[in-house]
Write a protein that binds this DNA or RNA. Structure first.
Lengths: 147, 147
DNA sequence: TCCTATAGTGGGTGCGCACCTACTATTCTT
DNA sequence: AAGAATAGTAGGTGCGCACCCACTATAGGA
């Protein structure tokens, strides 16, 4: 992949390029670890949303995470098959499926979070803790601006 | 896409996630601009390499940029068709094709660089110039560590 | 009640990217 | 001169991702 060797300075001077490259490495490494468990990035995002905000109608997960409804159906189905989330028809509107985090899902999320932090340690190895915190703060603000 | 709205804090707390997300946005926006000219990211990388380091044997471009030789052939072919680079058989080793930047390629690279900086302005809008410089410095060091 | 809108689902499409194989032309080795 | 190695090329494959369409079930409004 990105053969460390002598990347053109014209590219290294562009934050756009660095973000693209580093982001790809981050995504790739995390995806690899999730793949070993038969999971993809969206699985983790769904678990995190359920953990942070409680049960969601499937439709609300779609809105929150910005995924196609059809794709979300597949993700939730897989998570339910694995016993990580529970699906239940909403009695007040039987079109809706309420999705909630199962205990196994909470455990899984903790493990995935640890995987993500391991990737982080690899990736941010050149930075000391203070610098990592500064980077995190800057990235957070950039992310907020993404709209 | 990443619907700014209420991303799970468990994810926002992970630099891995932020890098992945922001990197994807950076890549996507730049790729869109290049696509309007019928170009892809590798085209820009090749132009930058030629500009920064002078003519390359095609094989050396492959090594420097870490691309598959077969894919590089296609990129160079497209750039040559557009008049942005020139191909010449190396007389000392007629297997080799020496690739060099044509004047039109230098102009194009300048425009693409401007496009990249425009994306940068969009993306890093929440940061002031000093913060952008700090981010750039941190990213550069992280990139160096990618190996 | 009829008509429209909404929630979820199954199946399929197109694109970009990385990768691989087979092949030709040329050079190097012995 | 023969065989192995190298540079480049044409074409094809598999994967992940985003997206779209058709369909069922349910609910809400006129």
């Amino acid at each position: 992949m990105s053969s460390a060797h002598s990347t053109p300075p014209a590219l290294l001077d562009l934050s756009t390029y660095l973000l693209s490259r580093i982001g790809k490495a981050a995504r790739g490494r995390l995806a690899d670890r999730l793949a070993q468990r038969g999971l993809r990035l969206w699985d983790m995002a769904v678990l995190a949303a359920l953990s942070d905000f409680g049960p969601h109608a499937q439709r609300d997960l779609v809105v929150r995470l910005g995924v196609d409804p059809s794709d979300m159906a597949k993700v939730v189905d897989q998570l339910a098959t694995g016993g990580y989330v529970e699906r239940a028809r909403d009695p007040e509107d039987r079109r809706r499926v309420s999705v909630s985090l199962a205990p196994a899902g909470r455990d899984l999320l903790a493990e995935l979070d640890a995987e993500a932090r391991a990737v982080q340690d690899e990736l941010l190895a050149p930075l000391d803790p203070e610098e990592r915190a500064r980077l995190q703060g800057l990235l957070l603000r950039v992310h907020q601006g993404l709209g």
